[in-house]
Design a protein around this nucleic acid. Structure first.
Lengths: 230, 230
DNA sequence: CTGCGTTTGTGATTTCTCTCACAAGCCCTA
DNA sequence: TAGGGCTTGTGAGAGAAATCACAAACGCAG
């Protein structure tokens, strides 16, 4: 099992296990945790937890469970969170500003090192203790400050251009909040967070269950009519 | 193909196609679009586009492509976007405020109808033209204003409690921005957006390619040493 | 009306993911 | 040291998603 590449689906769950483990460590101070318990906290089933963790190695003890501290360390290391990855936010609109001061990032060890925009009205102003710089200074900043993650928080029409500039500056990881598809070379990772897409997906399932309810209702009425006729 | 349940993976892509189609319609005003072109705009491959669309029905014309307006309408209808789904935001911190004034929601037809919190310091204040109300008024508001989507933007410790209240009030769709797992009955849909998890996933892939580069480098040096000895 | 170039729709296949179920292995007690 | 109770680690099978590859069908030109 070791040394096999870790499946994408597993990678996406490791941060959830990490959070659960932190809760266990801080909260109760238990020394070990079972796959069953971890599963409950992460909202998945126990077999999945065990298989996921087995990709990292055999870090559990049969009959006992997983050592909380040890597993915490292993997941942290596997996720590359032992080093820090300075990030830059491009776009200082509503969303950009909220992201710049979002506590969740720093709590997980991510530091916003710089914020950029192209609008003279905001350049030079402070956002979450950082002075907004012009996008033209991006490449320089990436080199000087070792920025390794770019966070796109621009309007959609600017997203591709900003992505190109990030790639050109040597950034290999991009988190895209703009509602637009961005294309990058294969050695660059992009993840997207699209808020309205999430709502649209919810809408689909809601509409569907309502449609079913309506159909069932119609059916019921038809049934009553049939009974009435009988 | 029709009437078969639409796969989850397909549902998640429909909003992306929708956006691409809107671009085509507004931008060029072309009357038809091919799966090839849609694929390019959506960042997927053409076969996937065709298979996805085929779940909705046979809306294309062989040798021609898809009628833009017609397909737009069909996807809109399938996603349930012909009716409106008023949403409520719970939690008026940085993120909650940014979400309340996020243009992307209204552009896609989602309306934030109410915002809630439990902190007396913000209740009664205005956020994006809406007066912040106490969470205790949630159930009432859900009924009166027909709220069908709950957006959780609280700190993590409060997320489950808020989710329970949403469920209790009859909300069937929840979008959770709090970095915490929330459990709900099976008839309720939850989608989560966890910003720092996205960064952790990026970190994993970045760290891995760096590790590979380092190993390759070490290898190269070993090779040179071996050559030196030969 | 025929033939050609184009693009869809979809069976078949491959790949990825989840789940099951149980042997292997650990701890503890006597 | 032997045995019983737990919990892990993982092979095997089921299921979902992605991809392939091609027949079917359309428009148009001659």
């Amino acid at each position: 099992m070791r040394n096999r590449p870790i499946p994408e689906a597993t990678v996406a769950r490791l941060p959830i296990y990490l959070r659960a483990l932190l809760d266990v460590a801080e909260g109760r101070g238990d020394l070990t945790v079972s796959s069953e318990e971890l599963a409950r906290m992460a909202g998945v089933n126990a077999a999945k937890v065990r298989k996921d963790l087995s990709y990292l190695g055999s870090y559990g003890t049969r009959g006992v469970g997983y050592d909380v501290e040890y597993l915490l360390y292993q997941i942290t290391r596997e996720l590359g969170l032992t080093q820090d990855w300075p990030a830059a936010i491009i776009g200082v609109g509503n969303l950009g500003r909220a992201l710049a001061s979002y506590k969740g990032f720093s709590e997980r060890g991510f530091r916003i090192a710089s914020v950029f925009d192209v609008d003279d009205k905001v350049i030079g102003k402070k956002v979450a203790d950082l002075v907004v710089r012009h996008l033209d200074e991006l490449k320089e900043a990436v080199i000087d400050e070792g920025i390794s993650i770019g966070i796109i928080a621009t309007p959609p029409f600017a997203a591709q251009e900003v992505a190109d500039k990030l790639v050109d500056a040597g950034v290999k990881s991009i988190l895209n909040f703009a509602p637009a598809v961005v294309n990058v070379p294969p050695d660059v990772s992009v993840r997207k967070v699209d808020l309205s897409i999430e709502l649209q997906i919810l809408s689909f399932y809601q509409q569907r269950t309502q449609a079913i309810a309506t159909a069932r209702e119609a059916n019921r009425r038809l049934g009553q009519q049939a009974q009435g006729r009988a």
